[in-house]
Structure formats: C-alpha cells, structure tokens
C-alpha cells in the first residue's frame, strides 16, 4: 500500500516539492543502530553501537577503514554501506597510485555525495539507504563529514546518526565547543559517553560498541575490544568518583546509571529515567530483579 501517489518512483516530485523515496531512504538511516563521530584539531574518533539481529547471531561490522587516513562509520543498510566503503577504498588507492599522496577527505566526500545524488535522479535506481560518518585527516587537518542518501553532505565538529542518536547529539551539543582542543583520550571518552546515551537502559560494554581513531601520527584503526573495555572501566570510575567536579557530567552520569534500573522496568521509555533516582546506582553485572 502506498502512502500517496507520488512515492512510487524516486524521480517523481510531490506537489509540495518533495521526493518521498529519498526521504524514505533517509528514514532508513534512522532505523540503523547509532554511529557517532567527533573530532579535535588532531584526531577524529568514530564510535558505533553494535546490535546483533538475533540472540544466535553476531553483529555486523559498522566501522570500516578506508585508507590509513580515512575511516567511516555507517548507520542504515549495512549492505549499502559496504558497497560505498569499497568504492571509497578504491578511490583512495587510485589517487594514491597516481599522486603517491593521500586523497583529501573533502574530495572523497564530494565524490561519494555525487554518487548518492545520481541515485536520486534515475528512475531505475534507488537511493542508498545508509548514512556515513566519514572521518579523516589530511593537509588541512582533521575532518568529520556526514553523507546523506539524498546526496547532501555536511561537515561537523561532532555528530551522531542512527537510532536514538538524538540523545548522543544532545550530549555532543553540550560539549562540542571543547572538542577542538581535546586530547585523544578525552575525545574517546566523549565518544563512549555519547555512545552510552544512545543505549536504552543497556549497560555500556565493549561487546556492544566499536571505537576507531585516526589522528596525527596515528593511522586509522579500530580499537580492539580489550582496550575499549579498559577505557570504559576507567571512565566509569571517573564518572562515579567526581560527579560534582565535572559539571556537565552531573546530569548524565547518575542519570544514565539510573537508566539501567529504570530502563529495564519501564521498557521503551528509558530516556525518562534521566534525573530520577540519583542515588540508585545499579550493581554492575547484576541483572535487575524487577523484569
């Protein structure tokens, strides 16, 4: 069943000047699990939430290394994301063959956007159902871009896409002004906290998130699970020790801790747990008893 007569075909305008198929593709991005990116002057950190499709399966890879200086985090149709990251890899390698220097991030992003745009203007195609956070480093510094199925692209200091990304964006919006001069470690910490914001009551564990870093003197790489777990452990101690010192953390840290308890009880409405029951810190690795 169609929503209306204008959304059968990508290239057909609605009288209001909209392309519904393209908008649906952008909805697909919101369905995917969250991906987060943030940058300082010297580093870009990408993070994502890994969700397995079933209890029996493993999760899909959502962060890809494109080249030593570029990586990408995706949300939406993972299959489309893989195709696009393969395209990006081949563009990088070809540029490197011809010029023996790394492809500027901005140029790759434009090429990618042009590729997505073509799909919005051909009746026999469909737009890519994936949003990409492209992080990279080049002569002009660190960059973070968001590429949209519509063929639009935007440069960001920090951004989040995918399901419940609004929570992460809210966190990032409060903090982004400090990111420019952040250290690598602080950037990763903020990425982890922002990732945690998108979780619904679930505890942040290294098994459900991936972190990747690229920076000056540091080629793009995905942090291994042990490293991530250590970082999570380290920053959660900090979060509990100094809630009164780190001013922006006051609202988030205990709130998120409360989410664990409240979220399990309230089901979908875990976001409302913010601020409630400040003292009720759930015991780590203990299942809430009121399921």
């Amino acid at each position: 069943m169609f929503r209306n007569q204008y959304d059968t075909d990508v290239t057909t305008w609605s009288p209001a000047g909209r392309l519904f198929q393209v908008e649906y593709a952008m909805e697909a991005v919101k369905q995917g699990s969250a991906a987060i990116g943030l940058r300082s002057k010297t580093h870009v950190v990408l993070a994502c939430v890994n969700k397995a499709n079933s209890e029996l399966s493993s999760h899909q890879k959502k962060i890809f290394k494109v080249d030593d200086h570029i990586g990408v985090a995706i949300a939406g149709l993972t299959a489309d994301g893989r195709v696009l990251s393969r395209y990006m890899r081949s563009e990088c390698i070809n540029y490197n063959y011809t010029y023996e220097s790394p492809l500027p991030v901005g140029r790759l992003v434009v090429q990618l956007a042009d590729k997505a745009q073509v799909c919005t203007q051909r009746s026999w195609k469909r737009p890519y159902g994936v949003g990409l956070l492209v992080g990279g480093l080049d002569e002009s510094g660190a960059h973070l871009y968001y590429n949209c199925p519509s063929g639009n692209y935007f440069e960001y200091q920090a951004f989040a896409i995918g399901s419940r990304s609004q929570a992460a964006k809210t966190y990032l919006e409060r903090r982004f002004e400090n990111f420019t001069n952040s250290s690598r470690e602080d950037l990763i910490k903020d990425a982890l906290i922002a990732t945690r914001e998108t979780l619904q009551g679930e505890k942040l564990r290294s098994s459900i998130c991936t972190i990747a870093v690229v920076g000056v003197e540091e080629p793009f790489h995905i942090l291994d699970q042990d490293t991530v777990q250590k970082l999570i452990d380290a920053f959660e101690i900090v979060g509990q020790d100094e809630p009164s010192v780190a001013e922006p953390d006051v609202a988030t840290e205990p709130g998120a801790a409360a989410e664990e308890g409240a979220g399990a009880g309230a089901g979908a409405g875990a976001g409302a747990g913010d601020g409630a029951g400040q003292g009720a810190v759930a015991e780590p690795d203990v299942a809430p008893m009121d399921i």
């Binding site: 010029y99 023996e100 140029r107 434009v110």
Partner: peptide, 11 residues
C-alpha cells in the same frame, strides 16, 4: 575543486 587543496611537486 576550489577546496583549498592543490597538487604539489611530489604529486
């Protein structure tokens, strides 16, 4: 491209 990047002698 008009993006501030330019090919240097190495390239």
């Amino acid at each position: 491209w008009d993006d501030g990047n330019s090919l240097g002698p190495k390239e």
